[in-house]
């Protein structure tokens, strides 16, 4: 991020200087900062609303119910985690929160899940297969309500802020499938490689 930030500004200034439009830089720097803050204010409302709704789902046990529904699908992905192990519970809560688009609710469950997985890990300095699979699914998660993006679109004055939900569902399904397939591929590859090394 440091590199990207520096490059954007430095290249921008150089290009403006070369094009003989250096006076633009001062103006745009100030105007950009101002419009950034204006945008945030409209964003606060929408994010807060979704976090409020998310909290209700968490308190009522709805996220937990969804976790139980996901279990039959998820257990095949994690053969190394025994049934009823606390890692599974936290992990399912994390996935459910992610699917509902409650990113900030998902992180505490996710951290708990990976800490539980560490207890099943033979080598505490190397990631286990279950951890890799979990992170693959976590970072690519299928998303039903992308709350923040809807908020952004509403803040920017979209006529129909939610009309990208279907497209996001499609894109996240692509990425979750890719994550599961590539994870499976790499896992097999690593197993074979380790066998030859020994």
């Amino acid at each position: 991020m440091n590199i990207i930030f520096s490059l954007l500004i430095l290249i921008g200034i150089v290009v403006a200087a070369v094009n003989g439009r250096i006076e633009v830089i001062t103006e745009i720097a100030i105007n950009s900062a101002i419009s950034a803050v204006e945008r945030i204010f409209s964003l606060v409302g929408i994010i807060s609303m979704w976090l409020g709704i998310a909290k209700i789902a968490e308190k009522s046990g709805l996220i937990e119910t969804l976790s139980r529904m996901l279990y039959p699908f998820v257990k095949h992905l994690f053969p190394s985690i025994p049934e009823g192990h606390p890692a599974m519970g936290s992990m399912l809560m994390n996935m459910s929160a992610n699917i509902l688009g409650f990113g900030s609710a998902a992180t505490p469950f996710g951290l708990k899940a990976i800490a539980e997985m560490q207890k099943l890990n033979d080598d505490p300095e190397t990631a286990s297969e279950a951890m890799c699979t979990f992170l693959a699914i976590n970072t690519s998660s299928i998303t039903l309500v992308p709350a923040t993006v809807i908020g952004l679109r509403a803040a920017a004055g979209s006529k129909n802020p939610t009309d990208i939900i279907g497209a996001i569902l499609f894109a996240t399904t692509c990425s979750t499938m890719t994550a599961i397939i590539t994870d499976c591929f790499f896992r097999t590859y690593y197993r074979v490689k380790n066998k030859y090394r020994r």
Binding site: I4, F5, L8, I9, I11, G12, I13, V14, V15, A16, N19, R21, V24, I25, I28, A29, N31, S32, A33, S35, A36, V37, R39, I40
Partner: peptide, 16 residues
């Protein structure tokens, strides 16, 4: 957001 608005703003308006 401020950081990005400024950086991207400069990058865009300069023609880069």
């Amino acid at each position: 957001i401020i950081a990005i608005y400024v950086a991207v703003g400069i990058f865009r308006e300069s023609g880069a």
